[in-house]
Amino acid sequence: MLETILQQRYMLVAVILFTIGLCVLFLHPNLIKKIIGMDIMDAAIMLMLATGGYVEGRKAPIITDGVTEFTHYINPVPSGLVLTGIVVSVSMTAFFLALTQRLYARYRTINLDEILIQAKKEVK
């Protein structure tokens, strides 16, 4: 058991980070903090992907000195995936912040519960 935990340490840290982000996203009424929680989840996923392609002793996947053996370099696919993830995470964060700003301009609060209560009142 302990060996498994040691073996999976990066994965476990990633999952714990993801869990923290998930709990913030689920349980915090403040919209800004929800967005922060989502960013923590993004970071956790990137950590998981980046460690997935790593092998001790291999080099970054940039061909140097004409060596093209696969066993000489780490896996380039996770790096590309993380690159994609960072860009999408940045744009989604900005988009959510803009939406939050609009909600704030409408309801004068960034507490989701208050917003829901006010919205319910409006419907009635």
Partner: peptide
């Protein structure tokens, strides 16, 4: 998630399925 992470392919292994 925590339970599943223990069953993931090991870290730092040249023979993981993604390779």
């Amino acid at each position: 998630l925590l339970y599943t992470s223990l069953g993931m392919p090991p870290f730092d292994d040249p023979n993981v399925p993604t390779m």
